[in-house]
Write a protein that binds this DNA or RNA. Structure first.
Length: 534
RNA sequence: GCCCCUGUAGCUCAGCUGGAUAGAGCAUCGGACUUCUAAUCCGACGGUCGUUGGUUCGAAUCCAACCGGGGGCGCCA
C-alpha cells in the first residue's frame, strides 16, 4: 500500500538524518485540504522535541532528502506550515488502487485480518419470548448484525447469539394470557393485552401447555421477522437450558469457591464492590428464588467457555446493569475488557411528525414487522445505521418511507442502479470489457475519476476502524460519500457514447466495476441490498 | 445525590487514537437534460464546534468544572 511505502521512505530518511530517538511509527494522513497534497506526515512536528531538533528545520531536511530520491508515484515533496511534510502524487497511485480493488474483489478488498481468527460472540436483540419483536429492538438488531458482519470481515470467528429469557413469572403470565384469550376471557391481572395474544391463542391446540407452546410460537415469529430484516442468528440460547444443564448451580459454586459470595439477611450476595460495582448484589433472594442476575452470570460464564471475546448489545435502559455484569465476570477471573457491552441509545419513533408511543402493557406496540412493511428492510436498516448509537435517534417512518431527497437510501441505491444501467447500455452497444491487464488506466485523470478512486482507497481503513470501534455508521458515511462521488462521475464522465474513445470506455468500465465492488462491500456490511434498477 | 450518553450551520447529523481556512444532506436562493435513469449534478447563503479554564508547537477532538437535553440507579425482569 502507498501509505506504507511513504512511511517507510520517511523512516529511512529519518535514519539517514540521524534522528534519535526514532519515532515509534511514522503517521501518514490524508490532508483535508487538497492544496496540501495527497498524503502528509507530521513526523517532524511529532518527533522534533524528543530528538532535540527544530521542527521546521527537520522537516526541510526530510523534504530535501526525499526529493533527492523520490518514492514511486511521488511527484514532489514539500514543506508546509509549522513542519508538515506533504507528498504530491501522480494519479498512477490511484490506478494501483483500482487494480487492487479489482484483483482482490468483493471478498478480498478491505478485509484486513486484524482478528487473527479470534472467536467473538455477539449477543443482541434477546427479546422476551412473549410476543413479536417490536420497533424498540430494531436499532439494536441492525447494529448488532452489522457489527458481526464487520468482525467477520476483519478476521474474527463470529457467533450471533440470541438469549431467550424463558424462565420466570412473565412466562406464566404469558401462558395464562394465551389460555384466557383462547377461552374468550380477559387476560389475568398484569397479563399481556396485545392483539397478537388473541390471534395466536386462536391457533393454539387444546392439549398443549400454553407456556411451552407460546414460547415456540413467539420464537417462530421473531425468527421469521428478524430474518426478513436480514438478521439470522447462529445460536438461540434458552435460559431454561441453563437450568436443565445445572449451569446455574455450577456458576454459583464457582463463585463460592473463589470466595466472592457471602450470606447475609437470609440472602446470598456477590461481593461485586470488590470488582468495581458500587454495591454488592443479591444472587439468591431470602425466599430462595434466584435474582435475574444469577442466571445471567451463569449464561455469560457459559459464553466465555465458547468465545474469547463477548459483545453484548443492550438498550440504554439497561446501562445500569453493565457495572455489575462486568464485576461478576471479573469475579470469575475474566478480564473485564473481554466483555464489551455496547449501549444503544433510544429511538424516538415518529409518524408524520407525531410521536408513536410504545407500551407493551397497553398492547399498542409497533412491531418490527410493521416497520418493514411500511418502509422496507433496506431503508429501515440504513436509517438505523445512519448515526452513532451513542446519540439518541429520531426516526420518522413517513420520511424513511418517502422516496424524496431527504432519504439517503435512495441516493445510495440509485448509484448502484446506475452502475447496472451502464452495464445494460454496454451490452446494447455490443461492447465487451477487455482484461484489466490489457487496459490503459493512465487515461483516468478526470477529477471525478480521481476522486472516486481516492474514496475507494479509504475503504480498508474505514472497515478496520468501524470494526475496532463497533461503529457501522462509519461504513454508512463512507458509502454515502462513494455514492456521491459516483453520481458526480456519472454526470460528468460518460462511459460510452459519442466523444468517448474506446480506450477511455475500457478504462472507465473498470473504474465503474471498482465502484460497484466498493458499494457492494459497504452495503453488505450494512446488511442493505441494492436493486439493479429502480 | 451518584452513574451512562449527549450539546457542531435554521433542521437532521458526520468529523473525536489532536494537526494546517470545521463537512454533508435538508431548507432558502440561482444555475445545468439532443447521449449511460434530472430519484442526478454545479454554485450561493449559512457555524465564537454549550460555557469557562487546563494540557500542547497545535484542541471540535484530550482533561477539569459548570450549564442544558435524554436515560438509569430494586432481595423487578
Amino acid at each position: 500500500m502507498i501509505r506504507d511505502d511513504l512511511a517507510e521512505a520517511v523512516r529511512s530518511a529519518l535514519v539517514a538524518l540521524a534522528v534519535e530517538p526514532l519515532p515509534e511509527q511514522v503517521a501518514m494522513e490524508r490532508p483535508a485540504n487538497r492544496d496540501h497534497g495527497d498524503w502528509s506526515s507530521n513526523v517532524a512536528l511529532a518527533s522534533a522535541k524528543k530528538a532535540g531538533r527544530n521542527p521546521r528545520e527537520l522537516a526541510a531536511q526530510l523534504v530535501d532528502h526525499l526529493n533527492a530520491d523520490l518514492p514511486a508515484h511521488v511527484e514532489s515533496v514539500e514543506i508546509a506550515g509549522p513542519g508538515f511534510v506533504n507528498f504530491r502524487l501522480a494519479p498512477t497511485w490511484l490506478h494501483d488502487v483500482l487494480t487492487e480493488v479489482i484483483t482482490e474483489g468483493e471478498a478480498g478488498y478491505a478485509a484486513p485480518d486484524v482478528g487473527g481468527g479470534k472467536a467473538v460472540n455477539v449477543e443482541f436483540v434477546s427479546a422476551n419470548p412473549t410476543g413479536p419483536v417490536h420497533a424498540g429492538h430494531a436499532r439494536g438488531a441492525a447494529h448488532g448484525d452489522s457489527v458481526a458482519r464487520l468482525l467477520a470481515r476483519t478476521g474474527h470467528k463470529v457467533t450471533r447469539e440470541f438469549y431467550i429469557n424463558d424462565r420466570g413469572v412473565q412466562m406464566q403470565l404469558y401462558g395464562a394470557s394465551l389460555a384466557a384469550r383462547k377461552a374468550g376471557e380477559e387476560p389475568p391481572e398484569g397479563g399481556y393485552q396485545g392483539e397478537y395474544i388473541t390471534d395466536w391463542a386462536a391457533g393454539m391446540p387444546d392439549d398443549v401447555d400454553p407456556v411451552a407452546w407460546g414460547e415456540d410460537r413467539a420464537l417462530a415469529d421473531q425468527r421469521e421477522v428478524l430474518s426478513a430484516f436480514g438478521v439470522d442468528f447462529d445460536v438461540w440460547y434458552r435460559e431454561l437450558s441453563l437450568v436443565e444443564a445445572g449451569l446455574i448451580e455450577e456458576a454459583l459454586a464457582d463463585l463460592r469457591e473463589r470466595g466472592v459470595v457471602y450470606d447475609a439477611d437470609g440472602a446470598t450476595w456477590l461481593r461485586s464492590t470488590d470488582f468495581g460495582d458500587d454495591k454488592d448484589r443479591v444472587l439468591v433472594k431470602s425466599d430462595g428464588e434466584l435474582t435475574y442476575l444469577m442466571p445471567d452470570i451463569a449464561y455469560h460464564r457459559d459464553k466465555f467457555s465458547r468465545a474469547d471475546q463477548l459483545i453484548n448489545i443492550w438498550g440504554a435502559d439497561h446501562h445500569g446493569y453493565v457495572a455489575r455484569m462486568k464485576a461478576a465476570m471479573s469475579a470469575l477471573g475474566h478480564d473485564p475488557e473481554e466483555l464489551d457491552v455496547e449501549i444503544v441509545q433510544l429511538v424516538d419513533l415518529l409518524k408524520d411528525g407525531e410521536p408513536v408511543k410504545i407500551s407493551k402493557r397497553a398492547g399498542n406496540l409497533i412491531e418490527l414487522r410493521d416497520v418493514i412493511d411500511e418502509v422496507g428492510a433496506d431503508a429501515a436498516r440504513l436509517t438505523y445505521l445512519l448515526q452513532s448509537i451513542d446519540s439518541r435517534q429520531t426516526v420518522d417512518l413517513a420520511v424513511v418511507a418517502s422516496q424524496g431527497m431527504e432519504n439517503p437510501v435512495f441516493y445510495v441505491q440509485m448509484a448502484h442502479a446506475r452502475i447496472h444501467g451502464i452495464a445494460r447500455r454496454v451490452v446494447e452497444a455490443g461492447v465487451t470489457r477487455v482484461p484489466l491487464a490489457d487496459t490503459d488506466l493512465s487515461v483516468l485523470v478526470h477529477e471525478r475519476e480521481v476522486e472516486l478512486l481516492r474514496i475507494l482507497s479509504d475503504l480498508p481503513d474505514v472497515v478496520a476502524i468501524a470494526a475496532r470501534d463497533r461503529a457501522p455508521h462509519r461504513v454508512t458515511t463512507w458509502v454515502r460519500e462513494l455514492a456521491g462521488a459516483f453520481h458526480g462521475f456519472y454526470h460528468d464522465c460518460y462511459v460510452i457514447g459519442d466523444g468517448v474513445s474506446p480506450e477511455l470506455t475500457q478504462a472507465r468500465l473498470w473504474l465503474v466495476e471498482s465502484a460497484r465492488i466498493g458499494l457492494a462491500i459497504g452495503l453488505d456490511l450494512l446488511g442493505v441490498s441494492a436493486p439493479e434498477s429502480m
